[in-house]
C-alpha cells in the first residue's frame, strides 16, 4: 500500500519548510488541506458536531505549533502526523468528558455542562432522518429497503445479504450507490455539505 506519493511528499516538505520560515499563508494552506479530513476522523471518535469543531481547532493549534518548533522530523509524513494529532485530541476530549461525567455522578452537581449533542446537532439529525424517510418512501422495491437495513443498520456481511436477496455484488453496489447519491442530492439541497 502506497502511503505517500512522491509529488504529494515534495509538496508537504515544502509546506513544512515555509511554516518553519514563518509563512502564515502556508499555515492556512495546511488548515484548508486537512480540515475536512480531520473532521471525519474526530467525529468518528467524539460523535458530536459541536465537539468535533472544538477538537478540530485544538488539533490545528497543536499541529502548527509542532511544525513551527521543528518537531516534525519527517515532513513528508505530514498527513500521518495530522491524523495522529487529531486522534489524540479526540481521545483526550472523550477522556475529559468521561471525567466530567464521573464527577457529575459522584457530586450530583447540576452546573457541569452536559456533553450531550447541542441544538445544532439535533436539528441536523432531524434533517437527516427527514431526507432518509423520503428516500425510503421513494424506493419501489421492498428488497432495496431490506438491503439498506441489513447492511447499514444490522451491519450484516455483504456476501450474506447478496446470497439471501439473490443479488450480485454489482447489483448490491448499485442499490447503495443510488440511495447515497439521492441522499446527497436532497440533503445538500437542504443543509449544504453532508458534514453539516
Amino acid at each position: 500500500m502506497n502511503l505517500v506519493s512522491t509529488n504529494s511528499g515534495t509538496e508537504l516538505v515544502e509546506l513544512v519548510r515555509r511554516i518553519i520560515a514563518g509563512d502564515s499563508a502556508a499555515e492556512d494552506a495546511v488548515v484548508q488541506r486537512y480540515r475536512q479530513g480531520i473532521t471525519v476522523i474526530i467525529d468518528q471518535i467524539v460523535r458530536s458536531q459541536s465537539a468535533t469543531e472544538d477538537v478540530s481547532q485544538e488539533t490545528f493549534r497543536i499541529v502548527l505549533e509542532k511544525i513551527r518548533r521543528g518537531d516534525l522530523r519527517q515532513p513528508e509524513r505530514l498527513s500521518g502526523f495530522v491524523c495522529s494529532v487529531a486522534r489524540n485530541a479526540a481521545i483526550d476530549y472523550i477522556r475529559r468528558a468521561r471525567r466530567l461525567e464521573n464527577r457529575e455522578e459522584n457530586c450530583d452537581a447540576e452546573h457541569i455542562p452536559d456533553p450531550a449533542p447541542n441544538q445544532l446537532d439535533e436539528i441536523l439529525k432531524q434533517e437527516k432522518s427527514r431526507v432518509v424517510r423520503q428516500i425510503i418512501n421513494e424506493l419501489k422495491i421492498e428488497r432495496d429497503r431490506d438491503l439498506l437495513n441489513r447492511y447499514y443498520i444490522a451491519e450484516q456481511d455483504k456476501d450474506r445479504i447478496c446470497e439471501d436477496l439473490h443479488l450480485t455484488r454489482t447489483q448490491f453496489n448499485n442499490v447503495i450507490y443510488r440511495a447515497i447519491a439521492r441522499f446527497k442530492e436532497l440533503y445538500v439541497r437542504r443543509v449544504g455539505r453532508p458534514e453539516r
Binding site: 467525529d43 439529525k125 437527516k128 439498506l148 447499514y152 447515497i180 441522499f183 453532508p194 458534514e195
Partner: peptide
C-alpha cells in the same frame, strides 16, 4: 464519500 455515507447511515439509524 465518507461524509455523505456517514450522514446517510445516521439518517437511517434515526429513522429506525
Amino acid at each position: 464519500r465518507l461524509e455523505t455515507t456517514k450522514a446517510f447511515v445516521e439518517g437511517l439509524r434515526l429513522v429506525a
